[in-house]
């Protein structure tokens, strides 16, 4: 029960509302407003927007958590449950993010099909391709930005990673199903790294620099 409670308690209303209420609502509204003209372009641009927002929103969750100077986990270090709780929180966040990213790509596609009679919908392989690339970009973005303690650098990195993701998706469009397990495996490795580095940062902070 504590694992379920610890994520919303730690994340806070602002972070959860931004990622899981405001962002989906904005994506749906944008789809309805702009979906009629260039649906495929819209999906790609939404992917870029979603990626940037997910990375920047981490500023309300674990900003600079892996930075050597971070005091972020100081309170959690005073509890014997601190490391375990941090690991749970990071893992739960990644699971929620993945589900959210998948829905944020799938729902606009369905809206475009049913509301605007989009006939050139992406194949399931390409959709999953995009979702897995999106998750990879977000996770890489979090891994990098959690080492930094600056919202401005976070925004720049979010911008660069989002467009790198766009290029990667565009280049790999039309690849066969073989790409999916490669992406899924890479995403699993990146997720494990995100959990590892967040706990490593807490453990490292217990040791000062040697003379």
């Amino acid at each position: 029960m504590n694992r379920i409670r610890s994520y919303p308690a730690f994340a806070g209303i602002k972070y959860l509302a931004a990622l899981y209420l405001l962002l989906p609502a904005s994506v749906i509204i944008i789809t309805f407003v702009f979906g009629k003209g260039y649906p495929k372009v819209l999906i790609f641009l939404l992917a870029v927007l979603i990626c940037m927002i997910h990375i920047v929103a981490d500023n309300w969750f674990l900003p600079g958590a892996e930075s050597p100077k971070s005091n972020l986990t100081a309170y959690m270090k005073t509890s014997s449950k601190g490391e375990h709780m941090l690991r749970n929180i990071v893992m739960t966040d990644l699971v929620f993010r993945f589900c959210s990213l998948a829905l944020l790509i799938w729902i606009p596609e369905e809206i475009l099909v049913y509301a605007f009679a989009w006939t050139d919908k992406m194949s399931a392989i390409n959709t999953w391709n995009m979702i897995l690339y999106l998750y990879m970009a977000v996770t890489i973005g979090l891994l990098i930005t959690r080492f930094l303690d600056s919202i401005w650098i976070t925004m720049i990195i979010a911008y660069l990673i989002s467009f790198a993701m766009l290029v990667a998706v565009a280049v790999s469009f039309g690849n066969g199903i073989w790409m999916l397990p490669v992406l899924a495996f890479s995403d699993c490795i990146l997720s494990a790294m995100a959990v590892f580095f967040s706990n490593y940062a807490m453990k490292r902070s217990r040791y000062d620099k040697k003379d």
Partner: peptide, 22 residues
């Protein structure tokens, strides 16, 4: 000597998280 809570936590959040940690 310095505050060890995350800056974005609210007073209520501190209580909720403390309840889970201790």
């Amino acid at each position: 000597p310095g505050c060890y809570f995350l800056p974005q936590w609210t007073i209520r959040q501190v209580g909720e998280i403390s309840e889970l940690l201790f």
